[in-house]
Simulated scan of single mutants.
Amino acid sequence: MSTSTAGLLLAAGEGRRFGRPKALVRFGGEPLVSRAARILADGGCDPVVVVLGARAEQARPLVPDGALVVEAVGWEEGMGASLRAGLDALAGLAPAPDAALIHLVDLPGVGADVIARLGACAAPDVVARAAYGGVPGHPVLLGRRWWSAVAATAEGDRGARRWLAGRDDVRLVECGDIGAGTDVDTPADLPDPPRPRPNHGRRS
Rank of each mutant, 00 (worst) to 15 (best):
Ser2Val: 10
Thr5Ser: 12
Thr5Trp: 04
Ala6Ser: 11
Ala6Arg: 12
Ala12Trp: 06
Gly13Arg: 04
Glu14Gln: 08
Gly15Thr: 12
Arg16Trp: 11
Ala23His: 00
Leu24Ile: 08
Leu24Gly: 04
Leu24Thr: 09
Gly28Phe: 13
Gly28Ser: 11
Arg35Thr: 09
Arg35Ala: 14
Arg35Val: 05
Ala36Glu: 05
Arg38Cys: 03
Arg38Glu: 14
Arg38Met: 03
Ile39Asp: 06
Leu40Val: 03
Asp42Ile: 00
Gly43Lys: 13
Asp46Cys: 10
Arg55Met: 08
Arg55Ala: 13
Arg55Cys: 06
Arg60Ser: 12
Pro61Val: 10
Ala67Leu: 06
Val70Thr: 02
Glu71Gly: 01
Gly74Cys: 01
Gly74Arg: 10
Glu76Gln: 15
Ala81Ile: 09
Ala85Pro: 01
Ala85Val: 05
Gly86Cys: 09
Gly86Ile: 12
Leu87His: 07
Ala89Ser: 11
Leu90Cys: 13
Ala91Lys: 06
Ala94Ile: 08
Ala94Pro: 02
Pro97Leu: 08
Ile102Ala: 07
Ile102Met: 13
Leu107Glu: 08
Pro108Gly: 02
Pro108Asp: 04
Ala112Gly: 06
Ala116Arg: 15
Arg117Ala: 15
Leu118Gly: 08
Ala120His: 10
Cys121Arg: 14
Pro124Cys: 07
Val126Ala: 11
Ala128Gly: 03
Arg129Val: 00
Ala130Asp: 02
Ala130Ile: 10
Ala131Met: 10
Ala131Thr: 15
Pro136Arg: 13
Pro136Cys: 08
Gly137Ser: 15
His138Trp: 14
Pro139Tyr: 07
Val140His: 01
Gly143Ile: 03
Arg144Thr: 11
Arg144Gln: 14
Ala151Lys: 12
Ala151Met: 12
Ala152Leu: 07
Ala152Arg: 14
Thr153Ile: 00
Ala154Cys: 10
Glu155Pro: 00
Ala160Pro: 15
Leu164Asn: 07
Ala165Asp: 15
Gly166Cys: 06
Asp168Ala: 14
Asp169Val: 03
Arg171Glu: 14
Arg171His: 07
Gly179Tyr: 07
Ala180Leu: 11
Gly181Tyr: 08
Asp183Asn: 11
Val184Ile: 15
Pro196Gly: 07
Arg202Asn: 05
Arg203Tyr: 05
Arg203Val: 12
Ser204Glu: 04
